[in-house]
Amino acid sequence: MILEVAVLQVKSGLSDEFERNFKQASTIISKIKGYISHELQTCIEEDSKYILLVRWETLEDHTEGFRGSAEYLEWKSLLHHFYDPFPTVEHYTNVDLG
């Protein structure tokens, strides 16, 4: 499993609209091959800052499958205009501590 992590800085005053659009965008991403789950959390200290966590079966399911899809264009049109600056997306995997 791969964990995609993005810190989202939403432009001031647009949080409510962003959350409405994100709810719609959630239905898009949840249908993509390799998608496992996602969550969006808002920052307690900064009300226009969010963290997006998406679990994928493989890195390629996100970087090639989703980002190369027509669905990604719809996701992008719903959400990308809210960000300033544009978020950095990173991918993580579990550390075996066993």
Results as ranks from 00 to 15, higher is better:
M1A: 12
I2A: 03
E4I: 05
V5P: 00
V5M: 08
V5F: 13
V5K: 09
A6K: 07
V7Q: 07
Q9I: 03
Q9K: 09
V10G: 01
K11A: 11
G13E: 05
L14H: 09
S15L: 05
E17K: 11
E17V: 10
E17A: 15
F18I: 03
F18S: 01
F18M: 00
E19H: 06
R20E: 13
R20Y: 07
N21Y: 06
K23P: 00
K23S: 13
A25I: 02
A25F: 04
S26I: 04
S26W: 02
I28Q: 02
S30E: 14
I32M: 14
I32V: 15
K33T: 15
G34Y: 01
Y35C: 06
S37T: 04
E39H: 06
L40D: 02
L40M: 08
L40V: 07
Q41I: 13
Q41V: 14
Q41Y: 06
T42A: 07
I44R: 08
E46P: 02
D47Y: 05
S48R: 12
K49P: 01
K49Y: 07
Y50W: 05
Y50C: 01
I51V: 15
I51E: 01
L52P: 02
L53A: 06
V54G: 01
R55Q: 14
W56R: 00
W56F: 07
E57H: 08
E57L: 08
T58I: 09
L59E: 14
L59P: 01
E60V: 09
D61C: 13
H62R: 04
H62Q: 08
E64R: 12
E64M: 05
E64S: 10
G65W: 02
G65R: 00
G65Q: 04
R67N: 09
R67M: 13
G68S: 07
E71D: 15
E71W: 00
Y72P: 03
E74D: 10
E74P: 02
K76Y: 10
K76N: 15
S77D: 15
S77K: 14
L79M: 10
H80T: 11
H81Q: 12
H81R: 12
H81P: 01
F82W: 04
F82S: 00
Y83A: 01
Y83G: 02
D84A: 13
D84Q: 13
P85E: 03
P85D: 04
P85H: 05
F86K: 12
T88I: 11
E90L: 08
E90V: 06
H91W: 07
H91P: 02
H91R: 08
Y92L: 13
N94R: 12
V95E: 08
V95K: 11
V95I: 12
D96A: 12
D96Q: 13
L97Q: 10
G98P: 09
G98S: 13
